[in-house]
């Protein structure tokens, strides 16, 4: 896939946000908040940063791999995969419905192209990504492994087992990112279980840490990804603290945990879609 310009990427983002909202609305369930917040990062990864093949192969040899640990962002991932040609965009209409390959949380079980492991129960994706990165090294495959986690997910103990392991074993072909939106289901992370200084924590665990301060600005995201890539291969795993706003792109959804797992009604959907240009054609 050819690299896209920043303007083209922005247009894709607008369509992807429309997809996410329409998917969640159609089935009246799902997680719009973080999906809207992570749109720039996913679009940047799949349409600009990663070398990947939409003729899906599970082993992904010679490709960059992406793992989603916070699986509830599934609507976003499905939209981006479909828009990349992994499967037909019409299939987005089956999201969360009976007999769909687009399960509520991502799974390999139904054979959806682009997904390499199930996620949903939090805290597991970093371990999986590290394992896949070590297999790449054993296979003399110089491509990278990417993984996305939630910030609330950092409360899971397994994440820190994995963080400790990755630096000890010098897994430097890995770029992890944390969706640093400061929100989780029960409210702001600072109130539910304060993460305090995540940068210091990962640095203390032996990671190279960079910030993408404007995680909803396409140019900043692309620039940050390039910087992260430049830090690979130097003996340390790389962490991106990706500052995003939950619900970004829709004025009444932005910056609140209230839209974590709530679907818009008809009126709210119309209002939201009015704020997002249809650029590639709705499914």
């Amino acid at each position: 896939m050819e690299k896209q310009s920043i303007d083209q990427l922005k247009q894709i983002c607008s369509q992807v946000r429309r997809d996410c909202l329409r998917m969640v609305h159609a089935v009246q369930s799902g997680h719009p908040g973080a999906a809207l917040g992570l749109t720039e990062y996913f679009v940047g990864l799949y349409f600009n940063e990663m070398k990947h093949d939409n003729k899906f192969n599970m082993d992904g040899k010679g490709e960059d791999l992406f793992f989603l640990s916070n699986g509830h962002v599934s609507a976003l991932w499905y939209s981006v995969l479909a828009r990349c040609g992994y499967f037909n965009t019409e299939e987005l209409g089956t999201f969360r419905k009976l007999n769909s390959r687009l399960q509520g949380h991502p799974a390999t079980h139904e054979g959806l192209p682009g997904i390499r492991i199930a996620s949903g129960s939090l805290g597991q994706g970093l371990s999986v990504a590290i394992g896949a990165a070590q297999t790449k090294k054993l296979n003399n495959d110089d491509k990278l492994v990417y993984v996305m986690m939630g910030d609330g997910e950092q409360q899971e103990g397994q994440v820190w087992e994995a963080a400790m392991y990755a630096s000890h074993h010098k897994v430097d072909n890995l770029i992890a990112a944390i969706d640093y939106n400061g929100q989780q289901i029960d409210g702001p992370t600072s109130k539910v279980m304060d993460l305090l200084n995540l940068r210091s924590k990962y640095e203390a665990f032996g990671w190279e840490v960079i910030d993408i301060k404007e995680g909803n600005d396409m140019a900043s995201v692309v620039e940050g990804m390039a910087k992260a890539k430049s830090l690979t291969g130097k003996g340390k795993p790389v962490m991106i603290l990706l500052y995003t706003e939950m619900g970004y792109g829709v004025d009444f959804m932005v910056g609140t945990h209230k839209w974590h797992g709530v679907a818009p009604n008809d009126e709210q959907l119309a209002n939201a879609l009015g704020q997002l240009e249809e650029t590639l054609g709705d499914y």
Binding site: G60, R116, V128, G131, Q134, Q158, E161, A162
Partner: peptide, 14 residues
């Protein structure tokens, strides 16, 4: 817990 996740990831690539 990390060990099980690592093992699952290592299968990807054979």
């Amino acid at each position: 817990a990390n060990m099980i996740g690592l093992a699952a990831g290592m299968t990807i690539g054979g």
